[in-house]
Design a protein around this nucleic acid. Structure first.
Lengths: 347, 347
DNA sequence: TTGTAGGCGTTATCAC
DNA sequence: GTGATAACGCCTACAA
C-alpha cells in the first residue's frame, strides 16, 4: 500500500498517464473529469497510497480548516464541557480543534501572541478570565478571526458569546434571600480580577442592597475555584459562619461542594445551620449531599456557539460583529434551605 | 501596524533593502547576520507586521509542530485529565495539540482515517476503548508517527503507554475480599467490548477463583460508565444486592458514586449493608459520602507520557518501539467497609 | 475534457 | 555576509 517515501501528485499523474491538473481535478471538482479517466486516477491514488500534502494545499487555499480554542485553564468540568461542545461543533463544521491553555506563569496574553505568530489556524476562540490591559491589547491587535468567550470587552469589534452572569447571580441571590430567608451571606469567589467573580460579586452586592442587608467586608473571600482550597478555608471558618439565616454563596460548584463537605465534617448541618449555594451546575452539584442549589451555565453550548460564530466569520470576514448572550438558569435544590422548592427532577 | 493584506517575506526584504535570504536568516537565527542589517530587517518586520506563513514554512520543513490527540470521548474527568496532561507536555516540547474525539456514530476508526488524510499533523496519540478489527487495521496501516494509549495491541510496532489495569484491579479485589470480607461481588462495568472493562472483569474473575467465591452471571452488569445510568440501575436493584459481605465493584468512580447515591436514597447503608468500590480515583471519589475506595489511575501522566513518546518518535522515527506501563495504586477509603484502613490522608 | 505554465511563501544550496 | 535561484506540492487560469 502506502510506500514509505512521500508520494506526490506528480507520481499519481504519471502512474495514471494524465497530467497533474487532471489529478487535482479528480481530487477537488470530480464532476469536471471524464468518467474513465477519473476511475484510472482514483485507482492510481489508491495504489500509491497518495495523500495530498496539506501544507501545499494550504499555501494555495490559505486555510487549514483548523481553529484554536484558548482557555485559561483545563482543570475541572467547566472547561471540559466547553471543550466538548466546541469540539462537537467544530467537527460538525469540518474544522479541527487546536487546544491550548494558559499554564503556570505564561498568561493568555503570551499565548495569544504565540497563536497568531507562526500558526496555521484559520481563527481562534479565546476565553479570557481576566481583562488585563495586556490582554485587551492583544485582543485588539489580533490578526486572525477571533471570537471571545465569556468576557465582556467594551466596544469590542469581535464576535463574542457571553453568559448573562449578572442576571443568573441576581436570581440566585434573590432566591436565597427571599425564599430561603438568608440574612447573612458569605461570598466565596475566585480571584478578584476574575471576570466571572466580578460579575457574581456585583450581583451579590446589588441584592444585598436591595434587601437592606449589611455588607460585611470580612464575609467576602477570594480563593481559586478549587475544591480543596474551599474545603480548607471552610474547615477553619465554618463554625463562625454557621447560624440561623446564614449561608455561603460560592462562585462555583466545586468550592460549594468543598464547603459542604467541610461543614459536614465539622458537624455543622447543611442547610440547617449553614446553607450553601454554588454556581455552574456541573455534575458535582447533583452529587453533593445535600444537592446544591446553583445556577446552570450552558457550558457546552457556549463552546459550540463560539465555534459556530468563529466559523461564520472565517467564511464571511466582513460581517458585522455578533454577540450571543446565553441565559443561565436557577436550579433550586436542597443545599440552600428553601422549603420544598423543587424546580426540576433530580437524579 | 499590521496591514490588512498579507505581507510576505519579499515585502520585508524590499523594505529593509536586503534579499529574501537575509530576511530568512534573521528569522531563523541559524547563520550569522551582520548586526546592522539584522536590526534593519527586524525593524521592517515590525513595521510591516510581518508574520511568516506557516504553510510555506511547513512545505519546506515538512512539519507543523502539531500533534493530534484522539480520544474515544470527551465526557468526564477521566478524559479531561488526560487532555490536561497531554496539553502541558505538548507545550513543554513546543507542540500544539489538536484534539479530536469519536462522537455519536462515527467511530475512532473513521477518525483515524480522517486524521492522516489531509492533515498537517506531525503525529497522533490515540486512545482506543475498543479493539475492533477495523481499528486494529487502521492502526496497523497508519502513516504518521503514532502512540497508542491505554490499549494493549498484540505485537504492535507502535509506541504505547498503558496502565497496568489488571494489577490494579486485582489489588482492589484482593483488598475487598481479604480486608473487607466481601463474599458476594456485583460487577458493574462499561460496555463488554471496552478494553478497560475487559481487563477489570478479568481481574474480577481471577480473584473470585482465587478466593473460591462463586461466579454468579447475573451479578455482572454492563453499563456505560455514566453516573446516571448506574444510579438508575442501582435504584432498581440495590435492595436485592444488599446483604452482609456484599459489595459492588464499579468499573469507574462515576458509576460507583451513582450506586452509592442510589443506595443511600433507598435507605441502604454504605458500606454496612452494601459496600462499593470504584476505579480511577477521579475527584468524585473523594467527594462521595462515604469516600470511595478505588484505584488511582495516573490520567494526566498517561497523557503526558504519550505525548512525550510521540514527540520522541517524531524526532527519531527509526527508534525501536517503546512501551511504558504506568502503575495504578490502591486507594483505600471508607466505602468498601474495610476496618480502619487509611492508606493516605483524605481531603 | 485535458494539458501547460505560473505562482503561493518559505527554506536551502550554492555562488559571490 | 549576502544574494540569486531552485525546490517544496498543490491549485487554477488559460490554452488546446
Amino acid at each position: 500500500m502506502a510506500g514509505s517515501m512521500p508520494v506526490s501528485i506528480a507520481d499519481v499523474a504519471k502512474k495514471a498517464r494524465v497530467s497533474i491538473s487532471t489529478v487535482s481535478r479528480v481530487l477537488n471538482r470530480r464532476q469536471l473529469v471524464n468518467e474513465k479517466t477519473r476511475v484510472r486516477v482514483e485507482q492510481a491514488i489508491r495504489d500509491l497510497g497518495y495523500r495530498p500534502n496539506a501544507f501545499a494545499r494550504g499555501l494555495m487555499l490559505r486555510r487549514s480548516e483548523m481553529i484554536g480554542l484558548l482557555l485559561p485553564d483545563l482543570h475541572g468540568e467547566f472547561y471540559s464541557e466547553i471543550i466538548r461542545g466546541a469540539n462537537a461543533q467544530a467537527r460538525e463544521l469540518g474544522y479541527n480543534l487546536v487546544l491550548s491553555s494558559a499554564r503556570d506563569g505564561d498568561d493568555s496574553h503570551a499565548l495569544l501572541r504565540a497563536m497568531q505568530q507562526r500558526t496555521l489556524l484559520d481563527g481562534v476562540a479565546v476565553m479570557v478570565s481576566e481583562l488585563t490591559d495586556r490582554i485587551q491589547e492583544a485582543l485588539a491587535g489580533f490578526a486572525l478571526p477571533l471570537c471571545v468567550l465569556d468576557a465582556e470587552v467594551d466596544g469590542s469589534p469581535h464576535d463574542s458569546v457571553v453568559i448573562d452572569q449578572r442576571q443568573g447571580a441576581v436570581a440566585l441571590m434573590r432566591h436565597v434571600t427571599q425564599r430561603a430567608g438568608w440574612r447573612r451571606i458569605i461570598f466565596v469567589g475566585g480571584h478578584e480580577t476574575n471576570v466571572d467573580t466580578i460579575a457574581r460579586l456585583e450581583a451579590y452586592l446589588q441584592v444585598l442592597a436591595e434587601r437592606d442587608l449589611p455588607l460585611v467586608p470580612g464575609d467576602v473571600y477570594h480563593l481559586d475555584y478549587q475544591y480543596d482550597t474551599a474545603y480548607a478555608l471552610a474547615a477553619e471558618r465554618v463554625r463562625s459562619w454557621a447560624g440561623p439565616g446564614h449561608g455561603v454563596f460560592a462562585a462555583n460548584d466545586e468550592m460549594a461542594a468543598g464547603i459542604v463537605a467541610a461543614a459536614t465534617a465539622a458537624g455543622v448541618a447543611v442547610p440547617q445551620e449553614l446553607a450553601v449555594v454554588g454556581f455552574d451546575d456541573t455534575r458535582i452539584a447533583r452529587m453533593t449531599r445535600p444537592p446544591l442549589t446553583t445556577v446552570r451555565v450552558p457550558m457546552a453550548k457556549m463552546g459550540a456557539r463560539a465555534v459556530e460564530l468563529l466559523c461564520q466569520r472565517i467564511a464571511e470576514p466582513q460581517r458585522p460583529p455578533t454577540r450571543i448572550s446565553l441565559q443561565p438558569e436557577l436550579i433550586a435544590r436542597e443545599s440552600c434551605g428553601a422549603p420544598g422548592v423543587r424546580l426540576r427532577a433530580q437524579a
